[in-house]
Simulated assay, not measured.
Amino acid sequence: MNMSTETLRALYGTWRIARGDAKGLTFFNYSISGFWRSFFAAVIVFPAFAFLRWHDLLDAPENFPVGRYMTVEIVAFVIKWLAFPVLIHQVLPLLGRAERYIGFITVYNWSSVLQMAVYLFALALGTLFPMLGPGGFVMIAVIAMLVYGVYIARLTLSVPIPTASAIVLADFLLSMVITSIGIRLAMGQLF
């Protein structure tokens, strides 16, 4: 299967899963090569990520270190994509689910494309309809994507909802820590 076909199938699978259809899991390539190709989702998500970081700079002060900020953000983006798979690789054997690692990460990686699309849509809605406040739609989208992540973890790892929730919460917190460190580095305030 070529990369474009695999990408389209995986994205369709993420859509089916988001609609509550567990048969969406049949659209993914669970081989070792499929696992590594699932990181191509980062390439798909990156332009939206870069746009959002650039958009953050619109309100930055004149002397803001734009180059350093963008460099640190790009490095943090890469670290986020690698840190969670490394962490979960250590956790799944403790849960007796080591054999499900490749399937979980494959689906979880591809799901990030849909998650970014939902996030961008929420930002657009927040701009068009500001009645929920500046982050109202985004907060709703973040909660929905956390629930979606829990559903993916439950399906792919065959674990109870509290365990799936803890896994997704670990990813969320890890991402927040990396983001926080990145911002402090960009501002030269880490130490």
Results as ranks from 00 to 15, higher is better:
M1F: 13
M1L: 15
S4N: 08
E6Q: 04
T7W: 05
L8G: 10
L8K: 09
L11P: 08
L11W: 05
L11R: 03
T14A: 10
W15M: 02
I17Y: 01
A18L: 08
A18W: 05
A18C: 09
R19S: 02
D21G: 02
K23Y: 09
F28V: 04
F28W: 01
N29F: 03
Y30H: 03
S31I: 06
S31L: 07
I32N: 07
S33M: 09
G34L: 06
R37H: 01
S38P: 01
F39G: 03
F40P: 03
F40Y: 02
A41N: 07
A41W: 07
A42D: 07
A42K: 06
V43L: 10
V45S: 13
P47I: 05
F49S: 09
A50W: 04
L52E: 08
W54Q: 13
H55A: 11
L58T: 02
E62Q: 15
N63G: 05
F64E: 02
R68G: 06
Y69K: 01
M70H: 12
M70R: 15
T71A: 10
E73F: 05
I74P: 11
V75W: 07
A76D: 11
V78E: 12
V78K: 11
W81Q: 06
L82T: 08
L82D: 10
L82K: 07
A83V: 13
F84A: 04
L87F: 12
L87G: 07
L87I: 11
Q90S: 13
V91M: 15
L92N: 03
L92F: 03
L94N: 13
L95A: 14
G96S: 06
Y101T: 08
F104S: 15
I105F: 13
I105A: 12
T106F: 08
Y108H: 10
Y108M: 06
N109Y: 10
N109C: 12
S111Q: 09
S111R: 07
Q115R: 12
A117L: 01
L120V: 15
F121K: 01
A122Q: 00
L123D: 00
A124S: 13
A124G: 13
A124F: 12
A124V: 14
A124E: 10
G126R: 02
F129N: 02
M131N: 07
M131K: 06
M131D: 08
M131S: 10
L132P: 04
G133H: 04
P134F: 09
M139E: 00
A141E: 02
A141T: 02
I143P: 00
M145S: 12
M145D: 10
M145G: 09
M145C: 13
V147A: 00
Y148S: 00
V150Q: 01
V150M: 04
A153W: 07
R154C: 02
T156E: 06
S158Q: 14
S158E: 14
P160E: 08
I161V: 04
I161Y: 03
I161C: 00
P162S: 05
T163Y: 07
S165F: 14
S165P: 14
A166T: 03
V168R: 08
A170C: 10
D171Q: 02
D171Y: 00
F172T: 06
F172W: 07
L173Q: 09
S175A: 08
S180P: 13
I181E: 14
I181Q: 13
A186T: 11
Q189P: 07
